[in-house]
């Protein structure tokens, strides 16, 4: 009989459950906006929570995972996932069926919304956005800055 080995992980099931309670709705909402498919979004959430123990070293020594860190891992995961439709499209009819949940997006100008969503959901860099929208990078950064001011003000 061949021996078995244990994957050593500093995170146990309890920690993962805590993370799930804390961020799963945010993560699901975020991924849904990208893939626009409930089943696919659920599968990505499951995969991401499974990968957290393997990537815990990227989160620092205190094992306190912030939303920002989880989102970075998610973006990286989605970039490597073939099934994720990683290209955010803006429609005149609205962003998705959950759009009405986001009051910040409603407060943004079309330009801010376009720049913010493409960076936030599609992971496009300012250089890429500048090229795509045919606008200088300074303007893209300024639009992002404006979007964050709206978020701050609420």
């Amino acid at each position: 009989m061949k021996t078995e080995k244990q994957i050593s992980t500093p995170l146990n099931r309890h920690n993962i459950h805590e993370l799930y309670d804390k961020y799963s709705a945010m993560l699901f909402g975020y991924i849904y906006e990208i893939v626009r498919d409930n089943n696919l979004a659920e599968q990505h959430v499951i995969n991401i929570y499974n990968y957290i123990p393997d990537h815990i070293h990227e989160f620092g020594d205190n094992l306190q995972i912030t939303w920002h860190q989880l989102q970075r891992l998610t973006k990286s995961y989605l970039e490597h996932s073939n099934s994720a439709k990683y290209d955010y499209q803006i429609h005149n009819t609205g962003y998705s069926k959950y759009d009405n949940r986001n009051r910040f997006l409603r407060l943004m100008t079309e330009e801010q919304k376009q720049v913010f969503c493409n960076a936030y959901y599609s992971g496009k860099t300012t250089a890429e956005l500048s090229k795509e929208l045919n606008k200088p990078e300074e303007l893209i950064r300024s639009a992002l800055k404006g979007a964050f001011i709206i978020i701050k003000k609420g």
Binding site: S24, A25, M26, L27, F28, G29, Y30, Y32, E33, A41, E42, V45, T66, W67, H68, Q71, Y98, R101, N102, R103, F104, Y120, F148, I151, K152, G154
Partner: peptide, 13 residues
């Protein structure tokens, strides 16, 4: 701020 916007867009899995 990013967390705030994610909370706004949260959808229960």
């Amino acid at each position: 701020d990013m967390e705030l916007i994610a909370e706004q867009m949260a959808v229960m899995p």
